[in-house]
Simulated scan of single mutants.
Amino acid sequence: MTQAESENDRVRERRQARLSAYTALREQRPELFTNPPDAAYEILLDRADQDRVTREVGELAVAFGFPEECADIGVVYRDPYVCMVRDAVRFRSGRLNTYIRFVPVGAQGGAAVLPVLDDGRIVLLHHFRHADRDWHWEIPRGFGAPDEEAATTARRELLEELGGKVTEMVHLGEIATDTGLHSGRDQLYLARLASSSFSSTPGPDAREEGIDAFRALTPDDMRSTLAQGGIHDAFTLAAWGLATARGLLPTSTAP
Rank of each mutant, 00 (worst) to 15 (best):
T218I: 02
V113F: 11
A213S: 15
H171Y: 07
R141Y: 13
L181I: 02
D205C: 01
I139P: 01
D205S: 12
I211W: 08
S197A: 11
D205T: 14
H130C: 05
R129N: 09
D118G: 05
F128W: 14
D221V: 04
S197I: 10
A150E: 10
D212H: 06
P104F: 06
P146M: 06
A150F: 06
A191I: 11
P115G: 07
F128N: 00
V113D: 10
L226V: 15
R133N: 12
L217T: 10
V123G: 00
P204K: 05
L226T: 10
K165C: 02
S199M: 03
V166T: 01
L162G: 11
R121L: 10
H126P: 09
A112R: 01
L124H: 03
A112W: 06
H130L: 12
E160N: 10
T153D: 01
D212A: 09
F128P: 02
S195K: 12
A145H: 13
V105L: 04
H182S: 03
F198W: 15
A112G: 15
A150S: 14
Y189C: 08
H126G: 00
D132S: 13
I122T: 15
A131N: 04
T201K: 02
L125N: 08
D221Y: 00
A213Y: 04
S197G: 09
S197M: 05
L190R: 07
G106M: 03
F143K: 05
D205G: 10
R121M: 07
